[in-house]
Design a protein around this nucleic acid. Sequence first.
DNA 1: CTAATTCAGGAACGTTTGTTCCGTATTTTT
DNA 2: AAAAATACGGAACAAACGTTCCTGAATTAG
Lengths: 193, 193
Amino acid sequence: MARTKEFSEDQALDKAIEIFWHKGYNGTSAQDLVTHLGLSRSSLYDTFGDKQKLFAKALNKYQSDSYVKVKEILETATNIKDTLTLIFKLAVVESLEDRITKGCFMVNSAVELAMHDEEIAKIVRDNQKVMEEVFFTAVKKGQEAGQISTKQEARLLARFIFNTYSGIRVLARAGEKDKQVYDDILKALFSLF
Amino acid sequence: MARTKEFSEDQALDKAIEIFWHKGYNGTSAQDLVTHLGLSRSSLYDTFGDKQKLFAKALNKYQSDSYVKVKEILETATNIKDTLTLIFKLAVVESLEDRITKGCFMVNSAVELAMHDEEIAKIVRDNQKVMEEVFFTAVKKGQEAGQISTKQEARLLARFIFNTYSGIRVLARAGEKDKQVYDDILKALFSLF
DNA sequence: CTAATTCAGGAACGTTTGTTCCGTATTTTT
DNA sequence: AAAAATACGGAACAAACGTTCCTGAATTAG
């Protein structure tokens, strides 16, 4: 029927994630998107609708990608406590290294947009729900295997893990570069397990 | 020499805190400021310079006000653990009640601007420093009085308190309305004390 | 009362914003 | 080969942006 797209929609979305992650929704202009995605304005609008729709699609992809990643890691883990430690240590390394996409795209979007955009708010809340569930399942498994203390309920620990993660990502976004600060937080978190 | 101002600069700043807190920096337009502060454009710019300067002044006032408040409460406290519990329970109530200025203005600003505005980044980092110090002093006092466990170092606990607070404020900003979620987080936090 | 000063309101500025439209190139189907 | 359909680049759009300037009113000092 017609010409084929010269770009991959998925790759374009990854580029959109990058620039929105770095600059936020309101901080990213249409020109920024054209430049960073390497598409013309028409292709961009023909493919994704408008800026808000593109943002929602990008955030959805980010949530899906990161969810699948964490879920897989935890489901194939033999020692839950060690694996959780690994996940958090990786988050710390990322926080200290990355110079562009600091923090967490989901946390940033929650703070900037959840109050003002119901579609984004729903993505954020859904992410929270499924992430809590992933942690919950993992903690439960860890408790049954005797790797995690049963002093606290699995639900409570799952929620606390998620909350601590959010805090760390804010810290990273604020530019905290002292590894000791992160390590203290991790030490405190894992003292509960 | 001349006419006196018809408005209080301090009250105007409080209004600026409100609107910036609610909408963020990039989400707040000059017209929003004029409308919400009740000043003319000229008065606004004559008094505060420009939007960025007004924001920085507003954030500075917010940090100063909230710092003084927490510091006073903790310094006059007879039981540190109970007082910390009270502070966090109040934060939860605010998170559940407030419909406008959800979350924490400092956390929101850190996420939105710290990477892109060095002046704001400095305010955020300074706030982090002094808040950690307030918590540190309080925890230390609590440990010496036997109100807080000495199983963890005071420095570590102070950092963890701050981090958990950030997380809670993100949760509130995301629109979490389930009190049980907040209570679980608080229960986990205080199980460390 | 006059002069000096600073106020407040609103028009106006040039930019930048997000979005649309048009002309052309390219590919696929008939 | 012709026709249909879509991608592309860039010009063009109105609206909103942050900021400045101009006007006249108000207040105080001399």
